[in-house]
């Protein structure tokens, strides 16, 4: 979920709560500081404007009449945002699998190249299976796929323990591959522009 939504809604609700308290005092004919009440009103108005902007950004044609309709609308928007987020995760895994398939392993010993290629293939499979699995795929740490092997070969303990840990747990094959691969062993085959 995008963090802006809850904070905007919370801000609106907080300012409205304060305004409501002041109005209740007025309703009971109790004395209130009218300036404070006005400020509370202005804050609430601002929060409402922000919220409307968010909604409008997600669903420009969306309309509502009350808070309930607004809440429904926000839930819809949140669903859409979540779906977008999962697709992004999948696309990242698929893009990394493609990146691994395109590169070449170079080493002085052929056994070692074979061994590393096998490991690459296992990692590609793992990434493709993860991306094809239903539900929300595991989030792959690290930068975009074209820079990913460099970033991963540079990970070292204990500085990058969190990322390494995530790799070891969620992407075991990929972690084996990058653990045996040295940065100079990976050569990305340049696409030849036609």
């Amino acid at each position: 979920m995008i963090p802006l939504w809850p904070s905007t809604i919370a801000s609106l609700d907080d300012s409205l709560n304060q305004l409501s308290e002041s109005l209740e005092k007025l309703k009971a004919a109790k004395p209130v500081n009218i300036t404070e009440v006005t400020d509370q009103l202005k804050t609430a108005v601002e929060s409402a404007r922000n919220l409307r902007a968010l909604v409008s950004a997600e669903m420009p044609e969306a309309t509502w009449q009350d808070r309930a309709e607004l809440d429904v609308l926000i839930a819809e928007i949140q669903k859409r945002i979540e779906a977008r987020h999962i697709e992004g995760l999948r696309a990242r895994l698929t893009a990394l699998a493609a990146e691994l398939e395109r590169g070449t392993i170079v080493h002085r010993r052929a056994v070692r190249v074979t061994q590393l290629n096998q490991m690459r293939d296992a990692a590609v499979k793992e990434l493709r299976s993860q991306a094809a699995a239903p539900g929300k795929p595991q989030a792959l740490p690290g930068p975009d796929p074209d820079e990913w092997l460099d970033w991963a070969c540079g990970l070292q303990e204990p500085d990058d323990t969190e990322s390494l840990q995530t790799l070891r747990k969620e992407f075991v094959r990929l972690d084996d591959f990058v653990a045996n691969l040295e940065p100079n062993m990976w050569v990305v085959k340049k696409e030849i522009l036609v």
Binding site: L16, L26, T38, A48, Q65
Partner: peptide, 27 residues
């Protein structure tokens, strides 16, 4: 003002000047 609170809760638009005037009258 109470109606405004309801509208604001739904993030609706309000006439803030009118509300402020009513708040003074209520006071």
């Amino acid at each position: 003002p109470f109606d405004t609170v309801g509208k604001l809760k739904a993030a609706q638009t309000v006439d803030i000047d009118a509300v402020v005037q009513q708040l003074h009258a209520a006071a």
